[in-house]
Amino acid sequence: MPVNKPFLHGQFAKRGIKAAKGITGIAVLFIAWQIGASVSGVSSYFFPAPVDVYNAFRDMMHKGILEVYLLDSLYRYVVGVFLGSLVGIGVALALGLNKAIAAVFAPLVGFFYAIVESAWLPVFVIWFGYGITTILTLLIFVVAFPILYNVLAGIQTLPIVYVNAARSLGATRWQILREVILPGVLPSIVTGFRIGAGFAFRGLIIAEAIAATSGIGFLIFDGAANKQTDRTIVGMIIMGLLWLIIELAYLRPFERATIQKWGLVTTAEQREVQ
């Protein structure tokens, strides 16, 4: 059956219309928000209008606060996710060398994973005080556990025939690890990393709210505490944009370049549940 491919320009036109509609949707929200704020006459502290938010944005850009906060947050996020991945992958491989060990540790890891990141925050504050150590420790936790959890689960579901096949061809333990187990759990590592990177971003915001004196999370909460609600909203919008950039420019391409390229369908949605 012949497939009717639309002409290229037709496709572009379609995309253009779609984008225009999407922008209209966002514009309508902002206009309604502005009108709502000016008509209702509520104080701008209680319900700042987009204009107030824009002014706050310009003010903070001018004073250079925003740049510092953004860089602080990004630095913490990148370092935390990087260290967390190292810890996660390292411990995962050490614990998950074989099915028996994976089976023994899986429930314990599952339990620690079930203690959500915000529940760790108070005890980290007691141990490490308010500051960068607490924030980084939290991010390491948040990133390492989903990797660990997914790798242990991945090893348990690795078909034993692969190991047997390699063994029957005379593979050493090291070769089995390198040729069978490691490639077999790579998708689990990527899935865990994706989940961890997502949780870490939320974790960063709440960690900065409680244990930092700079950063986007701090801005969101500090603004409200000082009756500068417009600054809070600037922080929220920047947080949203930042996450979209991280997600669309880094995480999705990373996933495409790895698991999707290896021909494995991601089940991130289902795994995220745990």
Binding site: K18, G22, A224, M239
Partner: peptide, 21 residues
């Protein structure tokens, strides 16, 4: 077409960042 881009953006803010407001 109208709502998805807007909701995608709002979703990326969703959660604890709304607490102050």
């Amino acid at each position: 077409d109208f709502l998805l881009p807007l909701l995608t953006f709002l979703q990326s803010i969703a959660g604890i960042a709304w607490i102050p407001l």
